[in-house]
Write a protein that binds this DNA or RNA. Structure first.
Lengths: 338, 338
DNA sequence: CTGAAAGCGCTTACAG
DNA sequence: CTGAAAGCGCTTACAG
């Protein structure tokens, strides 16, 4: 690959002038500009990004920092939707996406810190984890701008998340309105802040009608389908089992349906199930899953757009809460009279 | 963020010595080394990648060039599996992954070319497209090393792909052995080379028993589930419809099942369906899909490993063909006597 | 409109 | 073991 100096030599001008052409700047005569462009096309010259950015301080690379192992990322349809939204937005700004996952959960924070303190990326969308607060503190003086996809650890970093509280409250409302009173919940551990919010929402819905969450009917999974299956078995083995189960994500809800089926129970006749996320799979199962839609694509897109706004110091960039929507399909019905 | 000069000043040494510590090189006394390390820890200094790489000529960034729009990528579970494998391998080498998709199909090639000729990435895994040959020619003298995930456009670039020919042949064998004679095929357009190979494999299986592919029973989709659904309807509306349909990927196979169901036909009793890929969804449907497994994770991993070997000029890096495996589940049975 | 010079923040021979 | 100097390939004031 030739350098700018060689191009300059070939076009019989200075590197300065070539640089102007490269960056579409004025004050170059038509003739010289054409001559230079011709040489560039001829040689297929592509300027070195490293060199350019060393002086320009922009890499046109956006970091997507996901403090999970890549297996966890690729197993999570909702997160992939988020990623799709981010990628789409990045594309619009002619940014490339640098994907950084953790090899092991422990290394997550330090890898993120390194990247945010380095000059490889212009900014990053950071997916929320447990210890985002501690993480934010290790960042030091002037890290690259970043937004969190989830709940903010501190006041000064924009946070983009869905209305977890409202979504969970609506779902619980719906179950109650259908006549359910014994309602199991599959939550998770470790619990990101979003799940705290969902728990809060569902408890408030219960409280609003004078009910309370029976702690014996709360079981913890880890977001995976199998963990939902285990949780389902645990709940259904209960002496006085629930008539409905609210799983705090769709994959676990699918696991619950599977557990019920394995025990010879029919969904929704003998057990109602409701999830959260609305992943594509939700419509492919029988019965189709009733769930709370959390628009992953929009979340990702919004996070990226917020970051791009942040890159321009003129603009102020607010946090955003994306609404959720209850999607009623086939996995919930009123409880059987018993 | 401090620079190496500032660190040097603080540690009362030269930048050269700091650089040695940064790169774990010998010829630094224990005492100075410790002093420098202390200052680095204290300040949280992270050396500028741009500057480092401008001299070192390594970015530790691996390109994943996907000449599709991001929507197409994220809709394709098999491609996502491939990506997971690449990401895992990259992680092992402490490489980050730069994801480059196309905004529009047309722009794909030029974006790939730019990236491969730039110094942003050390190398790339390029997912095969139609016009990879034309693409390879636009690369010019010394592009970054790359491998193709699919079939090679020219002799000198390593190609990693599954045994498409053998897999399709085995699947067709199986249908024939089950007693099927009228067999529909859902292929695709545009048709990557892999699909040519699958067509070839299935035709050879037919020929081996003295049968030939009825061109009226070949319908083209575009890999998506809906296109498979359309194709299914077309085939089943045929005056003398097939008793089995071989869809050349799982998503289209699922579409075929859906079309059959919509027409009140039962799978596999009235129609056998076989797919290709073995995506996770294949086991979640009723009946579970019989298909040809193409190990996406392994393909991605192998491609990345091949590229890393290529980065070391000592090593020779061969192309690889990953075996496929016929996975017999519930969507195929012998045809009904008619 | 054009170009010489300095600088971005590192690393790499090389001399001491 | 240590450091001064040149260089990686660009861009950015600045002078002409």
């Amino acid at each position: 690959m030739p350098t700018i100096d060689e191009i300059a030599k070939l076009a019989r001008v200075s590197p300065t002038t070539v640089s102007k052409v490269l960056n579409n700047r004025p004050y170059v005569s038509q003739a010289t500009r054409r001559r230079i462009e011709h040489v560039i096309a001829e040689t297929g010259f592509v300027p070195s990004q490293w060199a350019r950015l060393l002086s320009q301080r922009r890499s046109y690379i956006l970091g997507l920092l996901i403090p999970y192992t890549s297996d966890q990322l690729f197993a999570d349809p909702h997160l992939l939707e988020v990623m799709r939204g981010i990628e789409a937005a990045a594309n619009r700004y002619e940014y490339n996406l640098l994907l950084s996952t953790a090899r092991a959960p422990v290394e997550a924070a330090s890898a993120c810190t390194r990247l945010l303190r380095s000059d490889v990326i212009d900014g990053a969308v950071v997916v929320e984890t447990q210890d985002l607060r501690a993480f934010a503190e290790t960042l030091g003086d002037r890290p690259a701008p970043w937004v969190v996809l989830g709940y903010a650890p501190a006041g000064d970093v924009p946070a983009i998340h869905a209305d977890d509280y409202g979504g969970a409250r609506d779902a619980m409302h719906y179950l109650i309105n259908q006549g359910h009173r014994r309602i199991g919940v599959v939550s998770s551990t470790p619990r990101p802040f979003a799940l705290d919010e969902r728990m809060r929402g569902l408890q408030d819905a219960l409280q609003a009608v004078g009910l309370a969450l029976d702690p014996r009917l709360v079981v913890l999974g880890d977001f995976s389908t199998v963990s939902g299956e285990h949780a389902g078995h645990t709940l259904l083995a209960h002496p006085n089992p629930p008539t409905a189960i609210f799983a705090l994500n769709d994959r676990m809800a699918i696991g619950v349906v599977r557990a019920a089926t394995a025990r010879g129970m029919r969904v929704p006749e003998q057990l109602s199930v409701i999830g959260f996320d609305d992943i594509a799979l939700a419509t492919l199962l029988t019965p189709q899953l009733t769930t709370v839609r959390q628009p992953g694509y929009l979340l990702g897109e919004t996070a990226a757009e917020t970051l791009f706004a942040l890159l321009d110091p003129q603009l102020t960039t607010p946090s955003a809460i994306i609404p959720t929507e209850l999607i009623i399909r086939g996995s919930v019905q009123p409880p059987e009279r018993g």
